[in-house]
Structure formats: C-alpha cells, structure tokens
Amino acid sequence: MLNLIKIKGQKKEDAANANGKPAAKKQSPGELRLHKDIAELNLPKSTRISFPNGKDDLMNFEVTIRPDEGYYVGGKFVFTFQVPPAYPHEPPKVKCKTKVYHPNIDLEGNVCLNILREDWKPVLNVNTIVYGLNLLFSQPNDEDPLNHEAAAVLRDNPEKFERNVQRAMAGGYVGETHFPRLFRR
C-alpha cells in the first residue's frame, strides 16, 4: 500500500538520482512468446523460413514451401507472416506472395485456413500454421473455396484440375488469368 509520507521521501530520492540513463523499451510479452515459437520451430523438410529484416525482427518473416506430395510438387510458394503485437491472443496475418491457382488461396494471396481466423487459439503457434499451410498443398479442399472456379474444377474434374495446376505453375494461362513460372530451370 502506498503512503504519502513515503512518496515525499521518494520524490527527494528521485531528484538525487536524476542522472540515471533513460529506461530501455521492454520486449512485449507477444514478442517473447514468438521468440519461443521460433526457437522451437520444427519445420517439415519441404519448408524454409527466412527473416528479411535480420535476426532481431521476428515479427515479420517469410515461409517458403516446396510441396513434396500432391498436385503442387515442383512449385515454390512464399508466404509472408506479420505477427501482431497482441500475439498470441491474435493470430499472425499470413498472405501468399506467390500467385497460385488454388481453391483455398485467392489471386490476392488471401488464404482460407481455419486456424488463421475463426479457429485460432492462443495455444496454437507458428509451427501449427506452417503445417496447416503444407496441408493446403497436399490436400486442397473444394469445400472452403476462395478461388471459386478452381474449387469447382477440383470437385467436378480432378484430372482437369491437375492439368490446370501444371499449366499455371509452368507460367501459363488458366482461363483469363496468367500465372508466374515456378519451376526451376
């Protein structure tokens, strides 16, 4: 409990110690939790992580996935992660930087993955999201479409879907939309 007499004494003491150096900004609890997430990452073989702003900015990073099974083998997909200060109360914002023909990723890079929005829980972590993203490539899902046409093709004609994915990743057109070439020469 505070006491006014004590405050009086303290004010004098503060004046005497006024030559102290300014207090440093503290790391937020969200940054510390992210530090733990990152240090404990256990990435699948298909996945690499990079930190474009160097070792001290963990709040912004990129995850590169080279799927090793499913329709997207041979492609290379880059996702940007933006971790909000309120992490892990709020999930990271994840966008797909690579333009991709995918039922659950739209052409603006929005990703439909339940744990990124409605099913996010603070016990989940960056690793969970990385596994979720890998799952999107091994098992694209026509029930939660963001790219409506791609989802319809996957549902009605999986062979055609496979051809479309190959054409897109080779740097061609699917319908009206042009996709960048992803295969390494």
């Binding site: 609890p29 109360h89 709020e90 659950n104 739209d106 929005n110 990703v111 439909c112 339940n114 929005r117 409605e118 996010w120 829980k121 603070p122 939660d144 479409p145 963001l146 409506h148």
Partner: peptide
C-alpha cells in the same frame, strides 16, 4: 494484466471462405 490475459475470449472472426462463398 498479463498474469490473467488468457481469460479474455478470442475475438469472433469469420472464415474467409464463408465471406467469399
């Protein structure tokens, strides 16, 4: 505040695909 921060319920967010479809 941080000792009990887990008591806050998560914000309601709609699935993107629901919004889109």
């Amino acid at each position: 505040f941080e000792c009990n921060i887990w008591l806050f319920p998560p914000q309601v967010k709609f699935p993107l695909c629901t919004l889109a479809e």
